[in-house]
Design a protein around this nucleic acid. Sequence first.
DNA 1: GGGTTCCGTGGAATCGATTACACGGAGGAT
DNA 2: ATCCTCCGTGTAATCGATTCCACGGAACCC
Lengths: 356, 356
Amino acid sequence: MAGIKDVAAAAGVSVATVSRVLNAHPSVSEDARSRVLAAVDELGYRPNAVARSLRTAQTRTLGLIISDVMNPYFTELARSVEEEARALGYSVIIGNADESPKLQDDHVRTLLDRRIDGLLVSPTDGGSPQLLDAARAGTPTVFVDRWIPGVDVPVVRADGSAAVRDLVAHLHGLGHRRLAIIAGPAATTTGSERVDAFRAALGAYGLELPEEYVGQGDFQAESGRRVTEAFLALPEPPEVVFAADNLMALGALDAIRARGLRIPGDIALAAFDDIPWFVHTDPPVTAIAQPTRELGRAAVRALTAVIEGRRARSVTLPARLVVRRSCGEPGAPPGTAPPARPDQSPTPRPRPRSNP
Amino acid sequence: MAGIKDVAAAAGVSVATVSRVLNAHPSVSEDARSRVLAAVDELGYRPNAVARSLRTAQTRTLGLIISDVMNPYFTELARSVEEEARALGYSVIIGNADESPKLQDDHVRTLLDRRIDGLLVSPTDGGSPQLLDAARAGTPTVFVDRWIPGVDVPVVRADGSAAVRDLVAHLHGLGHRRLAIIAGPAATTTGSERVDAFRAALGAYGLELPEEYVGQGDFQAESGRRVTEAFLALPEPPEVVFAADNLMALGALDAIRARGLRIPGDIALAAFDDIPWFVHTDPPVTAIAQPTRELGRAAVRALTAVIEGRRARSVTLPARLVVRRSCGEPGAPPGTAPPARPDQSPTPRPRPRSNP
DNA sequence: GGGTTCCGTGGAATCGATTACACGGAGGAT
DNA sequence: ATCCTCCGTGTAATCGATTCCACGGAACCC
């Protein structure tokens, strides 16, 4: 493959001049520039990014570590991260930690060896050693979705508390009083925050969240099924099951169907994380939608800011409630599922965004 | 960050010796080795992969270009590719072509600039210029899932024809005679092959595949919906809709529901590509499952073989039919759907699962 | 007209590793 | 004892770019 020397020779200039042309350095004569460009074109020359990286000490590569690639939420996040990064001239190496701190550390190490310019992480746990080291050692790092308290790193995430309040209001308005939640791992921020928000929202309606209505899940479908089965076996089963992520909601759906119960007739179901599939289930699932695309973009922008030495602030974007049919139908159809449906209902709570 | 020179200094040896220790070169004294190792440990030294790549002309990085990351099939493929690659000491840079040849070329160019060791591609079309150039120029390349006829590159894919025959047998046994297919883009091999296999299988039962029973989709959900609506508007609508990929099946599901029809009572549905979600829909969807994990692993192994100069052969793995309930319940269930579920029901439709 | 400034350019150092080659010393063969 | 062969090690070249510095010549200023 042709190198910069070949181009220099072909154009009758030095390698320095070729480099200057390629990097749009001002002091190059028009004549030299055109000869270089012609040579580049003729030889089909493409600069070697590896050599460039060695010299400039930047790879224009970002590392993205997510906890579960098979989860549609993270897939979408990864997609938007890659898109935004590409727009900014960065490539992305994705590492799938599979909810394992060990694997996560493995990925951090590899990425650091490859001298990525920055690290985007949705941490699996409270702080694996490599990750903490990297962050403290000054590797540009940004947390996305989940974060680790006490680590001074910008966080890009969605705040679901308002949406959870809207959800509880919606459920309460439908007459539901016994609400249960399938929680995520307590070691993750998203795991605990969602339970807290739910409990707080219930409190505003004078409702309790008893211990037996808090099931411990692990963000995987199977745990949703298990927890839901336990709920249904209770002497007084809940009227609503709220799953703290989409996969657990799926498990819940299965468990409910396996019991021969109908949704929302016999029991209502709602989920945190909205995904395209929830439109296609029967019934469509009411969910709290995170602005996933925007999260990905904001995360990349924050990270590149840190990389370029600008100080980046944390970003918190609001999640919003998307009412479908899995919790029951109010007097006037509230849904927002399929494409263009006029949402304005004459009844109270025209758009679920306020808090009581 | 500490470099190899620092290690050499700390251990009182030359950089050559340090390098030899790190690369397990035989001729290093036990004494020197231990001193180097100690120094490495103390300084927390990690070799700079960029410098190493420049010198050795290999990056131990693979490029993976897929046509749609949001499609669960490709997500799973990407996951298994990354896993196998990691096991072999490679990192993976994923590019999402989004079914656009232009974007695909863009990714090829970037990856080549980064001097990846090999390219794994599921081509979006019949041959975008950059991709063809790369393959012909000798960049180690392997096609996965889809391929480009006439290009001499190993192909790792699943053969669905036997499974399609099984499916048609299954449908025929259930009494269905009017079978329609939602096809993928003709420019992709998977798009045309599946239609061909379907037509051939029908032929074996003396059935035709009339023109109006072949809908043109694009592997996206919306096209599945559109095509299915057209099918249902036909004077004589099909009894079965077979979608050539999972997303289009989803669209079909929607269209059928929107018409108020029941599956499989009013119309049957089957899909190519099995995904976890098909277990959770109502009813669970009969599908043709590709050995996705194995495809990913085989693709990586083939690619690394080419990289290391060994000659790699193409691999074709069989897909298999997974019978669920979206086509009707046969007298004796042939299927192999969920783990260990005694599916044999004496009476039809034992559990309340239909919708009014 | 002479000195200063600026511009375009090339030579060479540099990034951090790997590795060919040379070299000194130990051990074996004769 | 002499020579040859290895073995362990260090010196320096190398990979392909970027960039500091120096230099020659043109333009500009009094």
